[in-house]
C-alpha cells in the first residue's frame, strides 16, 4: 500500500515538467524515507536524479519498498489536469499495474482521480559516488537559464571556466563568439540573488548547450542553482526543492581525444 499526499501539488507538476523532455520512461523508487528516480537520457550523455523526502509530504505511507515504471510524458499529461493550487495524492496497491493520481481543490469542492497504466522498464542504475569537486558555483537559477538560452543562439557548446576571477561561460559559432563572465557577488539584498564561487582549483570544461538548456526547465523549482565541476567528472547541475529534496542533472563533458 502506497499513499503520498502532497499539499503543494504544483511542486510535482514542476518536477515533471523539468525532466519529461530529457527522459521518456523511468522507475520511481518508493521507500519509507521518500521517493527517488534515476534515469539517463536515451543517448546516455545526461542523467537525472530526483529525490523527494517523505518529510515534505503531509501524509506519507509506503509499507514496503516498491518501484513503479512510468512514462513521464503520460504522467505529465495527467498532472497537467491538476490545478496549481490542488493537493495531489499518489496511490498504489501492491501488485497493481496502475497508479492513481488524486487531485483535490483547496476548498475540497472538486476531487478528481486519474488512473495511469504502469510499465516494465529495464533501467540502468549507475553508482554515483560522492565526489570532491574542484569548483562549485551557486547562482540565481534565472540567470543561469538566461545565459544558456543566450549562448545557444550563437553556438552549440559552452565552455564553463572557473578561476578566482569568476565563472566564464563561452561559446563560438558561425556568426561569432560570446563570453559571459560572472564575478562572485555576495553583497545583494536577497541571498538567492548572490553568485558564490567556491574554488579549490581552476577548472574549464566543455558541454553541449542543448542539454544545459533542457536542465533549465527546472528553474521554477528553485531560485538558485548549483553547478559542480571537476575535470574528470560529469558536471552536476542541482536545483534544490525547498525542505524536500532535489533534482540533479549530470552531464558528461565533451573532451579531446
Amino acid at each position: 500500500m502506497l499513499e503520498l499526499r502532497l499539499v503543494q501539488g504544483s511542486l510535482l507538476k514542476k518536477v515533471l515538467e523539468s525532466i519529461k523532455d530529457l527522459v521518456n520512461d523511468a522507475n520511481f523508487d518508493f521507500s519509507s524515507s521518500g521517493f527517488s528516480l534515476q534515469s539517463m537520457d536515451s543517448s546516455h550523455v545526461a542523467l537525472v536524479a530526483l529525490l523527494l523526502k517523505s518529510e515534505g509530504f503531509e501524509h506519507y505511507r509506503c509499507d514496503r519498498n516498491t518501484s513503479m515504471g512510468m512514462n513521464l510524458g503520460n504522467m505529465s499529461k495527467m498532472l497537467k489536469c491538476a490545478g496549481n493550487d490542488d493537493i495531489i495524492t499518489i496511490k498504489g496497491d501492491d501488485g497493481s499495474d496502475t497508479v492513481t493520481f488524486m487531485f483535490e481543490s483547496p476548498t475540497q469542492d472538486k476531487i478528481a482521480d486519474f488512473e495511469m497504466k504502469l510499465m516494465d522498464i529495464d533501467s540502468e542504475h549507475l553508482g554515483i559516488p560522492e565526489a570532491e569537486y574542484h569548483a562549485i558555483v551557486k547562482m540565481p537559477s534565472a540567470e543561469f537559464a538566461r545565459i544558456c538560452k543566450d549562448l545557444a543562439s550563437i553556438g552549440d557548446t559552452v565552455v564553463i571556466s572557473v578561476t578566482k576571477e569568476g565563472v566564464k561561460f563561452s561559446t563560438r559559432g558561425d556568426i561569432g563568439t560570446a563570453n559571459i563572465v560572472l564575478r562572485q557577488n555576495t553583497t545583494v539584498d536577497k541571498p538567492e540573488d548572490a553568485t558564490v564561487i567556491e574554488m579549490n582549483e581552476p577548472v574549464s570544461m566543455t558541454f553541449a548547450l542543448r542539454y544545459m538548456n533542457s536542465f533549465t526547465k527546472a528553474t521554477p523549482l528553485s531560485n538558485t542553482v548549483t553547478i559542480s565541476m571537476s575535470p574528470d567528472l560529469p558536471v552536476v547541475v542541482e536545483y534544490k526543492i525547498a525542505e524536500m529534496g532535489y533534482v540533479r542533472f549530470y552531464l558528461a563533458p565533451k573532451m579531446e581525444e
Binding site: 549507475l126 560529469p234 565533451k254 573532451m255
Partner: peptide, 14 residues
Amino acid sequence: RVFQKSMFDFYQEY
C-alpha cells in the same frame, strides 16, 4: 577532435 563522453565513461552500472 572533441568527443562527447557518455555517462558510462565515468560511472559503473549496478
